[in-house]
Structures are given as structure tokens and as C-alpha cells.
Simulated assay, not measured.
Amino acid sequence: MKSSKIVRLPLYAQIKDAILQKLSQREWKFDQPLPSESKMADEFGVSVGSIRHAVAELEDAGILIRRQGVGTFVRSYKDTGLWNRFQKFMRKDGRLPVFESNPLRLEIIPAPENVAEKMKIMPGDPVIRCLRDMSDNGERTGVDVAYLDLATFRDLKIEDLEDVKGNLYKLYEEKLGVFIADVTDILEFVIIDKEIQKICDLPLGTPLFFVTRQSRLLNKKTVEIRYEYCSAVNYRLRI
């Protein structure tokens, strides 16, 4: 009989997980400073050095930020110079686009199979679908289709989306208290044919960026699957 191999995480990694768990469960609030390093050391029963190592790792990951003389906070849009820290599109002149959105539909639907698989739910379980028409400087660029975890985004209303300039994550954070910690993007480059045109309604033959995004909370739970169809005519991608 083979013995099972037990993998023990380093102490600082266990502390990282504990900090993320407290934030995920909102025991520690996003808009308030984390307890001091000495208080965390007492709470977790470890040295201040181990706490410092864990916090530094979370800073490097872009999750936490130190504010001099104030404390350590969850990194928010107020702390960044970019309007969207996950934005990968760039105009060909080097400027960042600020996409404007026109919400077309916000509805609860049965989860499609591909969405359910990524969210680790059953096909047909209820999810929220958000459909938005996207533009930049008045020029239509494509559409954005997001599937959202129902429990996480239950309070989202279509009225909330009407003033959003492309950046749903700022809305999630400030309106709903939902912090998207990281995303995974899969990029495809396609040419619009008749089938794709039914979805994004751009001219046939237009080159298109098609992005599949999987967005996760601090506890690694996937709460958003997003499909972005964006014209590639005037844009390039930042890697």
C-alpha cells in the first residue's frame, strides 16, 4: 500500500491563506486597515517576521498596499493610476482607451455548460447574464457578455451599469463590495463571419479580438466568466 504524500505549506504561505480567508469572509473590511503586524502575530500565534513575509507576498501580488502612516489595505482602484488594472487594450497611438458601455440586458438565466464548468456549478443553475454594447470616443467597438455568480452579484441592477465607462470592477468594488483579486484571459484573433456578426453586429471581415476571461475573488472562487468581442482595427494589446 502506497503512503500518501503530505505537502506542508511554509508558515508564511499558511498566513497568506488565513489573511485572504478573513478578507473573503469580510471579517476584515476592504475599506479599513488590516490589524497591525504585531496584532496579527498574536492572533495567528506566529512571529512578526512571518507576518511581514506573508504581507509582502500579498503586496507583490497586487492584493495589498501599504499607505505610509496609515496602515495596510486591500489594493483598490483608488490606489492605482490605471482606470482598470486588468485592462489589456491600448490604442495604436499608445493611449489607454476608456471604453463606454451601453447596458442592453441584465437577466437571470440557466448557466450554459461552458460557463457552469468554469464556475464549478451544475449546467442549468441560475446565473446572471450581463450584455453591454461597447464604444470608444463614440465609435462602436463590439460587445461584452458577462456571466456572474448569482449569490455574489444578486444586488446588481441595470441602473448601476448605465454610468459605467467600461470598468465593471470599480462598480463591483464600490457598489457591491466585491473585490476581484485576479483574472485569467485567453485571447483569440478572429475575422468576423456571419455567425460572429450575429453576436457583435460589426461589418463582415472586421478583425476582432475575442477574449475569454475568468475572474476570481480572494478565496479563488470564480464569480465571473466574461466574453469580450472587440474590434482590432484601432487597438493593440499590452502584454
Score class of each variant (00 low, 15 high):
Ile51Asp: 03
Glu37Thr: 15
Asp42Arg: 09
Phe99Thr: 06
Arg52Phe: 06
Phe99Pro: 07
Lys29Asp: 10
Ser36Ala: 10
Gln21Phe: 15
Val70Gly: 05
Glu27Ser: 11
Leu96Thr: 13
Glu57Lys: 03
Asp93Asn: 04
Pro35Gln: 04
Val70Arg: 05
Ile65His: 00
Asn84Tyr: 11
Lys39His: 15
Asp17Met: 10
Val98Gly: 14
Ala54Gly: 05
Gly81Arg: 04
Trp28Leu: 07
Ile19Met: 07
Val70Glu: 04
Ser47Lys: 02
Ala54Lys: 01
Val74Arg: 03
Phe73Tyr: 15
Arg95Tyr: 07
Ile19Glu: 02
Asn84Trp: 03
Leu20Trp: 11
Glu27Phe: 05
Pro35Phe: 02
Val74Ala: 00
Gln87Ala: 01
Asp31Val: 04
Arg66Leu: 08
Met40Tyr: 00
Gln68Asp: 02
Asp17Ser: 11
Met40Val: 06
Ser24Thr: 12
Ala54Met: 05
Leu96Gln: 08
Ala41Gly: 00
Val48Pro: 03
Arg26Glu: 11
Leu58Ala: 04
Gly69Pro: 01
Gly94Tyr: 03
Asp60Lys: 14
Ser101Tyr: 10
Asp17Ile: 09
Asn84Gln: 06
Lys29Gln: 14
Ser38His: 14
Leu82Gln: 01
Glu57Met: 03
Ile65Ala: 09
Thr72Cys: 01
Ser101His: 12
Val70Ile: 13
Lys78Leu: 03
Asn84Pro: 02
Phe73Arg: 09
Ser38Trp: 05
Gln21Lys: 09
Ser76Leu: 09
Tyr77Leu: 13
Leu34Arg: 02
Gln68Phe: 02
Ser50Gly: 00
Tyr77Lys: 14
Gly45Lys: 10
Ala18Asn: 11
Asn84Ile: 01
Arg91Pro: 11
Gly69Leu: 00
Gln32Arg: 13
Arg85Leu: 10
Phe73Lys: 08
Lys29Trp: 15
Gln87Val: 00
Asn84Gly: 04
Asp17Trp: 06
